[in-house]
Design a protein around this nucleic acid. Structure first.
Lengths: 261, 261
DNA sequence: CGGGGCCTTGAGCGACCTCAATAAGCGTGG
DNA sequence: CCACGCTTATTGAGGTCGCTCAAGGCCCCG
């Protein structure tokens, strides 16, 4: 699929400017004009959920679509074999609520206290017939989401874990909600196991990879959840010709120094 | 994102019935009513491309959206580090042509001789304002594509390669174009390296995995490109509790027989 | 101070990748 | 028809990245 309307509409639902983000390209966001905003407000229902609440479960009956206003939402798919995969993190401005045959395909969980907007599907459909432009906004949103998904897939198939983690850090820095561009501090809102499940690996490996990145001075860690990334360095790592990126995580990078007695 | 209109519209662009497919759930398909069909025909341009032709290159200027009529199209993303990832295979009825900032994000290649339909973006946009229902169809298409993408991601993160390959075979069997439900013969149109790049692995590993599946009687191979899958068995493998699926590919499955002298 | 989350670190092993050789399919031309 | 080359697929052997299991810090809160 594709974006039939290539340029976003006037007003953004999302917090601030994104042109300043590294790795440009719109984040999945429903963008509405002021009129549409009021139109939508008529059918929107505001919801507050506290951290660690399940917003909807995988396979449950679907009749609502959501929009993040504040906070962070995690989309997880529980695999039949027990493992679980984090499919996405949704930030303010992002829509979510993918379903099929009236059942949600995944589970949505609030990672922080969240403020959400909720739409009944039938209402939304009605509104679409009244204002095709609104539907257009949703189409663009869907396509943006699609791009994000492909990006995610590409990240996960980067075999060397170091690259995956590097890519993840870069992605996070595109979110103004957790990356303070002026201080250069990135706040990791999700825990290690969320990151691991997002990248298709394990907590231990994520931890080790972050350690290596720190050794290589590609990130500096204030604490486990606050890092100062060297974005250009990380990007260089990402596009590096595999060899240097394969950087064995195991070897604690003892240089060639012959062991001094 | 989500499907604001949950039920497909009357007429399918796609070949035949899909309810009979294993693992139901709509394949990404633009579904149009007869009127929409004629409406769209006004701006559609029919294109023939022969096998192995690049339809558009990654990063090239995007102004067209495509729809597969006949044949198979492969979407590939070339990674900066040299590797390449197959993002999707598109069958008759599927739209493609994802872009961002007027540049195609990926490369589209015809794997077989193809018959395509081509739309200029601006034309399509105009048509959307005239017939919002048409836009609705495209929205549904985008959402369907999104589901496929998530499915793909889940497949690829299934770590044990055996499961990935099993899942791939099952997916293929959902395509009436290559799976003959009556004979039970599946024709693999793509070559091993396409499969490998789709699953995020290597040709050798795909080859070995197929070998194991054959040993386990989960598939029978007429030749390299024609297999007779045991769908229920494969599905059982997919949901199996990891242990048995980890089936070491290496060991040529010499049973426990103590070596007879 | 003790307990329970998180995160990190360690040691060992195994699934998969890599590289390399062999085999099978297929068209072309003698 | 077979010889020849080219592409595609399979098979083999060895090395290694990342997983597993297990122990040890760190931090918060009672």
């Amino acid at each position: 699929m594709d974006a039939p309307v290539s340029r976003p509409l006037p007003l953004r639902a999302r917090a601030e400017d994104q042109r300043t983000q590294p790795e440009a390209g719109p984040v999945p966001t429903i963008v509405l004009s002021p009129e549409q905003r009021t139109l939508v407000a008529g059918i929107a229902q505001s919801v507050q959920v506290s951290a660690k609440t399940v917003i909807y479960g995988q396979g449950t009956h679907a009749e609502m679509v959501f929009l993040v206003r504040k906070g962070l939402v995690r989309i997880t798919h529980q695999l039949e074999d027990g493992r679980s995969q984090v499919l996405a993190f949704h930030w303010p401005g992002d829509p979510f609520g993918l379903f099929e045959n009236d059942a949600y395909l995944n589970e949505a969980t609030a990672l922080t206290d969240c403020e959400l907007e909720r739409f009944r599907l039938s209402d939304l459909r009605d509104l679409f017939t009244k204002d095709p432009q609104l539907q257009s906004a949703f189409l663009i949103g869907a396509v943006a989401e699609l791009r994000m998904n492909q990006r995610h897939l590409l990240l996960v198939t980067h075999r060397p874990i170091l690259k995956r983690v590097a890519g993840f850090v870069i992605e996070c820095c595109r979110q103004p909600e957790c990356y303070n561009a002026s201080t250069g501090i990135l706040t990791l809102i999700m825990d290690r196991s969320d990151i691991a499940d997002y990248l298709g690996t394990t907590v231990e490996t994520v931890s080790r990879a972050l350690g290596v990145l720190e050794n290589r001075k590609l990130i500096m860690r204030r604490d486990a959840r606050h890092v100062h990334p060297d974005l250009t360095g990380l990007k260089r790592l990402l596009i590096s010709p595999e060899a240097e990126a394969t950087g064995r995580i195991d070897i604690p990078s003892l240089p060639l120094s012959p062991r001094c007695p």
